[in-house]
Computed example of a mutant assay.
Amino acid sequence: MADSQMVNARGLNITRSDDRRYWRWVKEPENSGDYFEAAELLNVCWLQVSGKFENPKLSQGTHEVVLVAKMKTRAYGWDAPVNFKLTHADTTNHGTINLEDMFKDSKDQWKDIKLGEFNASTNQGNIEFWLYKFGGKWKSGLVIKGVAVRPKS
C-alpha cells in the first residue's frame, strides 16, 4: 500500500493548457536538484482543473487530497473564491476556497491546499477532483505542481 500518490500537472486536465496565451509549462527545481514541470496560469477567466486517481492502493484510514501550488507575487484576479469538488466511493466533498487568502503571506512558495478528505477502506475505487471558476475576473499567477492524496496527519 502506498502512503501517498501524486498526479503531476501534465497528468491533470487543465482547460486551455495547450494554448500559450493562457498557460505555459515551466521547469521548477526539486530539493534533490532535479526539475519537474509545472503549469503556470498566464491569463484566464474560465478556470477548470480536474483529474483522478484510478483505484489507488491506500492504507486504511483518513486521507486528504491536496492541490500542490504556489501563487506568483504579481498574481491577480483571486479575490473571489474558486470551487472544488472531490468524489470517492460514496463520499462527495465540495465547497469553495479563497486562494488569495491561502497565499496571503506566502507568495512564490509551494503550499498544499486541501480539497477534501475521505476514509479509505479495502474497496476504494477512483478518486476524482475538480477545481473550477467559470466567468468573473481574469486570473493570473497560479502555478500548479499537481494534486496529491495522502494519509491525513
Rank of each mutant, 00 (worst) to 15 (best):
G146P: 08
P81T: 04
V44M: 01
R24A: 06
G11Q: 09
L86A: 06
H63P: 01
K139P: 00
S153D: 13
P56I: 02
E128S: 15
G125P: 08
V49E: 00
N55M: 03
A9D: 03
R24P: 06
K72V: 08
G11M: 09
L67F: 11
F84N: 05
N31L: 10
A75E: 04
T122N: 13
L67M: 10
T73A: 07
N8R: 04
W23H: 05
N123Y: 12
W138L: 10
N55T: 05
R74K: 14
G77K: 00
I144N: 07
P151L: 11
N83D: 08
V149M: 01
N8F: 08
S17C: 12
V65F: 03
S50E: 07
V7A: 04
V68D: 08
K133D: 11
Q124A: 10
L142C: 01
S121W: 09
K85C: 15
N13K: 05
F84Y: 15
G95M: 12
E40D: 07
G61R: 00
N13D: 11
G125W: 04
E117W: 12
V65A: 01
W23Y: 07
A38E: 00
G135T: 11
W110T: 13
N126L: 11
P56Q: 03
K72H: 10
A75W: 02
D34S: 11
W78I: 03
H88N: 15
I97F: 14
S4G: 03
A69L: 05
N98T: 11
K137W: 04
L67V: 07
Q5F: 05
W138G: 07
F53D: 00
G33D: 02
K152Y: 09
M102S: 15
D19I: 07
L67C: 14
E128D: 14
N55D: 07
F129Q: 05
Q124W: 04
G135L: 12
